[in-house]
Nucleic acid binder design. Structure first.
Lengths: 111, 111
DNA sequence: CACAGTACTCTGCAATGTGTAGTACCGTGT
DNA sequence: ACACGGTACTACACATTGCAGAGTACTGTG
């Protein structure tokens, strides 16, 4: 049940994908990812990923004061981030395809 | 192009899946995995994984002398390993499903 | 006998997700 | 006025794990 290791190398793409949909701030992105199926994701993982993606030039950032709580640090995806997302999505598909074949997902699913 | 991180948490399942098909030794498993689509996999990763899986009680092991080279340490999957594979396969499907939805794989592929 | 190919082991390293603690702001209840 | 829970972010130490590199050893070939 420990999907921690599965996240490695995928969290970046997941965060970029969520941001491609709409700008967001850390706390919000954590919620969106959990709703999307990554229920056990840790807050710190997402914040760390956001900082890393920003440092790599894939995201823009701006602070928005909130009426109901502390300020929010919004992140948005830029052209470089979109290119990165496109590439990592392709890598994911290839990789997931190989995994599916190995595990016999297609064969076994039949429903 | 660096799928190194994607392997984390998946190599175990991949190795178990290959062994479910047929017993094998390290050097051979590396080749089989590469043919299966994990072309950039490192030898040391597989040997390490085999040792870990064996230490966790998922594999049996026996040495077979070879006529054309050094001895070969064969590994085979046991009941415990099969159970583990079944569970990690389920985890993988859930996880990959969430990823696919996020990345819009289904939308773009036209089944 | 040197060398390439096969086969395995060991060590140190790098990347990354996580828990924990800490800071700070806001609204509500008492 | 004050405690408290929810929101929001930061920093740090840690564990896991894949990998490169070096080393050992056996076999067949030129």
């Amino acid at each position: 049940m420990d999907s921690t290791q599965l996240l490695k190398g995928v969290l970046d793409s997941a965060v970029l994908a969520v941001l491609e949909d709409e700008d967001g701030y850390g706390y919000d992105i954590v919620r969106r990812l959990r709703v999307a199926g990554f229920e056990d994701i840790g807050d710190a993982s997402v914040y760390g990923t956001l900082r890393r993606l920003y440092a790599n030039g894939f995201l823009t950032s701006y602070v928005v004061p909130s009426e109901s709580g502390p300020h929010r640090k919004y992140y948005g995806i830029n052209a470089s981030g979109r290119a990165q997302l496109k590439e990592s999505t392709a890598t994911w598909r290839t990789f997931a395809g190989a995994m599916d074949r190995l595990l016999g997902t297609r064969r076994g699913e039949r429903v």
